[in-house]
Amino acid sequence: MSLDEAASRLQEQFHIIQRIDFRGEISLELPLELLEQACKFAKEQLGFNFLTDLSSVDNFGDEPRFEVVYELYSLERNIHLRLKARVSEDHLEVPSVTHLWPTANWHEREVYDMMGIRFSGHPDLRRILMWEGYPYYPLRKDFPLEGKSSNTPDVAFSEPAPLAGGPFVTLPSPGHIKDREPRARHAEDQ
């Protein structure tokens, strides 16, 4: 089965909101309610036996705000399919796929840690990078890069970092090294 056939079979089986074909990659966007079934179908019927990655996107300002992205891979057929679903900020709950791919366990913990999206049915949904008790979700677009102060007694504390006019970024340019070197740049300077 080629990637195209696999995608068509999913399209026959489920209501697909949007299909994007880009440079040989196929992304299918599903309603959140169908996501778990579609993952199960992809694994059991279409042979996507490996979950390469599970990530999330914060489309700040859009509604629904968040998006979860599943990168599926078939080791037998060497094909790669992407499934996506939008998650509303009012209901940050996504069904866990740990029972299909055990590797989803840590990926889901990371999404929970960084974006605050909860996974129902996850066996052990704890933060994975930040410590238990940290009150923010630092990869959200409305969280400042320099951080916020917090204090979890005996575990950890945090303070905003001095940005000194930063963030400091390099611009790609063929110019002299002195023009390219990292310096404070803001969105409005571009």
């Binding site: 951080g147 945090s158 303070e159 001095p162 000194a164």
Partner: peptide, 11 residues
């Protein structure tokens, strides 16, 4: 803190 002027690193 080096190049990590960020929320996660002690300065």
């Amino acid at each position: 803190g080096g190049m990590y002027r960020s929320y996660a690193v002690l300065q």
